[in-house]
């Protein structure tokens, strides 16, 4: 079974062609390079990240053990095959070696771990921006932040951020690593890997999404208005519900004032408002705990006063 030069030329072009972003052929080279058996959900995740030619990246949030590293590896390998070689992996310091090893073992990808020492050495050898080199660069979060200007001026073809939930507080002003990474890589394509994109509040999800694409949501304030409370299931307990219901039944509008002494002791301690008992009024939002029968009339009097 031999072929002619015409076949060879045709096949060689087929093997090296760049396929459109929404096709499996797009990943064929990377898939064929992989030294592990790839699972369909991994291929699908890799396709997902850059399905749109306008995509700025994605958050790949599979549960632990489903091979997020492999998903990122497929994407890195494909970029590599397309000779787009400004590739960066940011991960916790203790995972740098593992990344290096996995990319080599599973995808034949050469990597360089960049840290203070190797950085200085590279500069001494004449590379004034060691982030630019012929290998995939791996560095820690701290290092990425420390070398922010270098990170910013490198025209990355793809940045992989592992254990990205570490950046979930990026929306808070004090998060230096998060904001450094977000702002210096804003224009680049990124893939964030995390098994737990949502831990405490929905704000965190907003934070992670904004790192990938700033234009998916407006700002945090509107986001909260629209979606807040969801992280804990946006729910209130049944006792809270009955409390609100009673307030409604009492017909108190939202600007009524209620004397603190009208409230039952149990409620006071339950909502930790004791520290405020020195003041006479509790709130002006019309919400209060249904007091004892005796207190009811007193409150009526008070609420009419305004």
């Amino acid at each position: 079974m031999s072929i002619t030069p015409y076949h060879a030329k045709l096949f060689a072009h087929e093997l090296t062609r760049r396929a459109p972003s929404d096709s499996i052929e797009k990943l064929a080279t990377a898939l064929s390079e992989a030294q592990v058996d790839l699972n369909p959900h991994q291929i699908e995740a890799a396709l997902f990240a850059f399905r749109s030619p306008l995509s700025k990246g994605a958050i790949l949030a599979d549960e632990v053990g489903l091979g997020k590293t492999i998903e990122a590896g497929i994407l890195l390998a494909q970029r590599w095959a397309e000779r787009r070689r400004r590739l960066l992996v940011i991960c916790p310091a203790n995972l740098r070696k593992q990344w290096s090893q996995e990319l080599a073992d599973k995808f034949f990808l050469p990597t360089a771990i960049l840290e203070a020492r190797t950085f200085t050495e590279a500069v001494r050898r004449g590379n004034l921006n060691p982030f630019e080199q012929s290998k995939i660069v791996i560095c820690s979060y701290q290092f990425a932040r420390a070398k922010e200007p270098y990170l910013r001026q490198t025209a990355w073809d793809l940045v992989v951020i592992d254990e990205a939930h570490r950046l979930r507080n990026v929306y808070k002003s004090g998060n230096k690593i998060g904001s450094a990474i977000k702002s210096s890589l804003a224009a680049r394509q990124k893939v964030l890997l995390t098994a737990t994109p949502l831990q405490n509040s929905l704000d965190e999800l907003y934070g992670l999404v904004s790192i990938v694409d700033e234009f998916t949501f407006g700002d945090l304030r509107t986001f909260r208005k629209q979606f807040a409370g969801a992280a804990r299931g946006a729910s209130i307990t049944s006792s809270e519900a009955s409390l609100l219901e009673e307030a409604r039944l009492l017909g108190v509008d939202s600007y009524s004032v209620v004397p603190i002494e009208a409230l039952s002791g149990g409620f006071k301690s339950a909502y930790a408002i004791q520290r405020n008992t020195d003041s006479h009024w509790l709130g002006n939002d019309g919400l209060f705990f249904p007091p004892s029968r005796a207190g009811f009339e007193r409150r009526r009097r008070f609420s009419r006063r305004d």
Binding site: A228, A234, I236, E240, A272, W281, L282, G283, F288
Partner: peptide
Amino acid sequence: RSEPLKGIAERAAAA
């Protein structure tokens, strides 16, 4: 000082 109550109301509204 009204925040604990307001909090419930906001959560209820969010829900």
